Simulated assay, not measured.
Amino acid sequence: MRALFEVILVALQLYTYLIIASAILSWLVAFNVVNTRSEFVRSIWKFLDAVTEPVLRPIRNIMPNLGGVDISPVILILIIMLIDRAIRYYVLPFVY
């Protein structure tokens, strides 16, 4: 049972990295640092969008419009950190 929770924690950590990569890539696209006409960049962009958008969309629907600032990745990372802490402190100490 402990191994299952360890796998969940690793998956949460990996998803956090994907959220950060998606946010950084969106900044790079917005400031024209990377060329979205490149097939490599476009494939990475589509992958990150397909992986993160289904989770970020409900958060964006709940939040008020803040203009051009999107803080939904930050909120999602905070939720992931909360889940991570809950598993580490409340579940894993009791699993043998």
Score class of each variant (00 low, 15 high):
R2K: 12
A3S: 14
A3C: 06
L4W: 05
L4N: 04
L4D: 03
F5Y: 13
I8W: 01
V10I: 11
V10D: 03
V10C: 03
A11T: 12
A11F: 09
A11L: 14
L12Q: 04
L14W: 10
T16G: 15
Y17E: 00
L18Y: 07
I20A: 06
S22R: 09
A23Q: 07
L25I: 05
L25W: 06
S26D: 11
W27N: 00
W27C: 00
W27A: 07
W27D: 00
W27R: 02
L28N: 02
L28D: 01
V29G: 04
A30V: 01
F31K: 03
V33S: 06
N35Q: 06
N35A: 05
N35G: 05
T36R: 08
R37D: 02
S38N: 14
S38M: 09
F40T: 14
F40H: 09
I44S: 08
I44G: 06
W45I: 10
K46S: 12
L48P: 12
D49F: 09
D49W: 02
D49L: 06
V51C: 14
V51Q: 10
T52A: 09
P54I: 04
P54Q: 04
V55H: 08
V55R: 01
L56A: 14
L56E: 13
L56D: 12
P58Q: 10
I59K: 08
I59F: 09
I59P: 02
R60T: 11
R60H: 08
N61T: 08
I62P: 01
P64G: 14
N65V: 11
N65K: 07
G68Y: 13
G68L: 08
G68R: 09
G68D: 04
I71P: 01
I71G: 05
I71H: 01
S72C: 03
V74E: 07
V74A: 09
V74K: 02
I75P: 07
L76H: 02
I77W: 07
I79N: 01
M81G: 08
M81P: 00
L82G: 15
I83R: 04
I83L: 15
D84A: 09
A86H: 06
I87S: 05
Y89N: 11
Y90P: 05
Y90A: 13
Y90L: 15
Y90V: 10
Y90W: 14
Y90T: 12
V91A: 11
L92A: 08
L92T: 02
L92I: 08
F94K: 13
F94T: 13
V95R: 07
V95T: 13
